[in-house]
Design a protein around this nucleic acid. Structure first.
Lengths: 336, 336
DNA sequence: TTGTATGCGTTATCAT
DNA sequence: ATGATAACGCATACAA
């Protein structure tokens, strides 16, 4: 039998109200002796308040939902930790929900979060552009929600995103400044917003350097290592590129492999820039020059924004764009 | 204002009991018309039952706690997914709790799980041997709990573990069968059980091949890349080894780096075996021969065991030891 | 300084 | 086939 506030009250010879006050630090007008007496009983019986019952009254669960595509995608563990650390510090617990970007799983989980009365939700949707209809049902739930990393086109939701245009710009500019001109570009799938944004940055840099863009060396990838490998093989065998900007690290590693097989040395013969700064960047040689997204920081900021919204009830929507960082490592070199 | 069962009852002109029965599929003795009428109102008002209130009565939250050291450790995302997939299929939601193996955070989270009335807990503790005292407090909570990956020495808890002796044995045997005799061994920190188990396997293989073990080429590492690097430098410069068995992949990658810097070719001059089969094994060349732990499977099994315990209330403790798999890749080669 | 009573939204027991 | 009501464990308005 689990011990309740009633048991404590009886055992200590006081009312449950008194116990409640004491365990909730609202003991202002309570005698020290009573306080100690109750606390002693609490200790003895190992009493733990039932947060379920508490939530019934307070309408707060001190729980948030974190909905992401897949924790196995190496981008997410950092992000999740960022969220959790902030949540934990605020006495919150987090539900982890993997959706595989399946519309059904997303909808299901969102409904479950509603039923479980989470105080807020942090949501990372699929890469593909979402119809607003989808998010409308979420709005009906009246639960504070922060979008994370994906969905910036839905402007009536608060969200935290990477400034992908700026990121693409920085990466490309870095290569241009190293005197590269034939800079191959391996993008993400066509429909994916962040890929398109990065490409805008690529164009912007070329434009700034007043160099024409050769669209034949812009190849769509799939954000997988394999896609980077295939694209790189095409670029290196048929085209005359001295540098490649891959829109994520996984594809950049594919470029490494292709170069390796073709006997092309990085960075002597080919400069490579990636995107993500995945943890295993620490393990490859030469280390990849890449764009750091700071997933941890994104998670932190999203969580902070969420708690702001939860606590202040301010429904001011804001979209935060995080400045990426260019991490210069050994995979890029001045073009002779 | 959020809509409750009362609203549905009023709107449909029935009692809340009837509504409750219908939404819980206990509509056996209820007229079809009534049923449809109620369901229609439920639909119209977008009613979602409040699982908090439901839990008050049923004493079930359909929630489990997953307590791990750090999701950023590449071993855990797979494991977490394994747990979540099973949980999700069983209509459960999971709290993710990162403890950094801090005793305080562990204790705190466990208490929080108790307060939030989770139906069960899956717990991965710190590497270091735990005193039974610690787990005693958990037992008082009377919540089903499954230990995962760490804590096999606490035999009165159910748990899922890797058979580390077998794993160490398989890795070493593989090298011995490739005619290596001077097989350097980079272990984990001394106090860590799984390292000691793996070492037992190492010894067992040598014993089986009737080859004496040279303890001077057994070097304690720290499970970090840096530790593998340092140990490998020592082994390769001062000792005469033709193969190295590192007790995890991270250290094996350190071996790669050391070999690279010393101009030693893998696998031509040095065979290397790791442990974990981390995802980024796919990215390095040559691919690392290693032991696969199948973290996903561990998570799955642990979750299944937990639900067994939750549903059957059978308190039969069982310890499951998962057979590891030797993944043979390009980092090992017959010794000339 | 402390206690009594009400209600949170639901399920379960017992009627009808 | 359906309904009234107690109970779950707690916080809170109101009393004393």
């Amino acid at each position: 039998m689990t011990v309740t506030i009633k048991d404590i009250a009886k055992q200590a010879g006081v009312s449950i109200t008194t116990v409640s006050r004491i365990i909730n630090n609202k003991a202002e007008g309570i005698r020290k002796e009573t306080c100690e007496k109750v606390l002693k009983v609490v200790e003895e019986l190992h009493y733990k308040p039932n947060s379920i019952a508490r939530s019934m009254i307070t309408k707060k669960t001190y729980t948030i939902g974190l909905v992401i595509p897949d924790i196995r995608n190496p981008f997410f563990p950092e992000l999740v930790r960022g969220v959790e650390d902030v949540a934990n510090a605020a006495q919150y617990t987090v539900f982890l929900c993997n959706t595989d970007s399946s519309h059904r799983k997303e909808t299901d989980y969102l409904a479950i979060m509603k039923e479980k009365n989470v105080d807020g939700i942090i949501f990372t949707g699929p890469q593909e552009l979402q119809s607003k209809d989808f998010y409308q049902s979420v709005q009906e739930y009246e639960i504070p929600i922060i979008l994370l990393d994906r969905g910036q086109e839905i402007e009536d939701f608060s969200g935290v995103y990477i400034d992908n245009v700026q990121a693409g710009y920085m990466a490309t500019k870095h290569l241009l400044e190293l005197s590269h001109q034939n800079i191959g570009c391996i993008t993400g799938p066509a429909a994916i917003p962040n890929s398109n944004e990065r490409y805008k940055g690529y164009l912007k840099a070329f434009s700034e350097f007043q160099i024409p863009v050769d669209e034949s060396i812009v190849i769509p990838g799939n954000y997988q290592m394999e896609g980077g490998y295939v694209a790189a093989k095409a670029l290196l065998k048929e085209r005359d590129v001295t540098a490649i900007f891959a829109f994520n690290d996984l594809m950049a590693f594919g470029v490494y492999q292709a170069a390796y097989e073709l006997g092309i040395k990085i960075p002597e013969d080919l400069s490579v820039v990636g995107f993500d700064n995945l943890p295993f960047n620490q393990l490859i040689r030469p280390k990849l020059t890449t764009i750091e997204q700071s997933a941890y920081k994104m998670g932190e900021i999203a969580a902070k924004m969420l708690f702001d919204q939860i606590n202040n009830e301010k429904s001011v929507k804001e979209q935060v764009f995080i400045e990426p960082t260019l991490i210069i490592n050994g995979s890029t070199k001045e073009h002779a």
